[in-house]
């Protein structure tokens, strides 16, 4: 049942006295990747580097930085990789746009496919009108049948 317990890497001596600042620090930490155990945030990680980053985040908040300034500083050192949620910019355009583009292309392809088969089916249901020769043959057949019956 261990996985039900909230993962708390933040140690008591790190926690700020001011609850507002502390909750901002937690929020920022949850969005920053631990560079040692890379699929954890620094808020979750027990790595020592993660601890030092948590302390740095808190130190900067106490010094009066806003959330974005703190994040910008760490990104300026480690690059966008440190953000668990990649930012939307030119370099990440393919990443963000791919799902929408693939959905759109697939949607258009499906639409075209069904429209095409629908018109093909329609042509079968309503065949071209008979030519004059066919019309005459038909009339002859019908007349002959009338006579024979």
């Amino acid at each position: 049942m261990a996985w039900l317990a909230p993962s708390l890497a933040v140690e008591p001596d790190e926690v700020l006295a001011d609850p507002t600042l502390e909750s901002r620090a937690r929020g920022i930490s949850q969005g920053l990747r631990c560079l040692v155990c890379q699929n954890q945030s620094i808020d979750d990680s027990d790595a020592e580097l993660a601890r030092d980053l948590r302390l740095l985040v808190r130190e900067r908040l106490v010094a009066g930085d806003d959330d974005q300034q703190v994040i910008d500083y760490i990104v300026s050192r480690y690059g966008d990789f440190v953000l668990l949620k990649p930012p939307f910019k030119l370099a990440t355009l393919a990443l963000w746009a791919a799902p929408a583009v693939i959905l759109l292309v697939a949607g258009v392809a499906v639409f075209l496919y069904y429209r095409q088969s629908a018109t093909a089916g329609g042509a079968e249901a309503a065949p071209a009108p008979l030519s004059q020769a066919e019309q005459q043959r038909l009339e002859t057949i019908l007349r002959d049948r009338d006579v024979s019956s």
């Binding site: 560079l35 040692v36 020592e48 580097l49 030092d52 980053l53 302390l55 740095l56 760490i74 050192r77 480690y78 690059g79």
Partner: peptide, 13 residues
């Protein structure tokens, strides 16, 4: 001791 310079250099290990 507290990674100040290491973080400034973007050190990961």
């Amino acid at each position: 001791p507290d990674s100040k310079a290491a973080i400034a250099f973007g050190v990961t290990g």
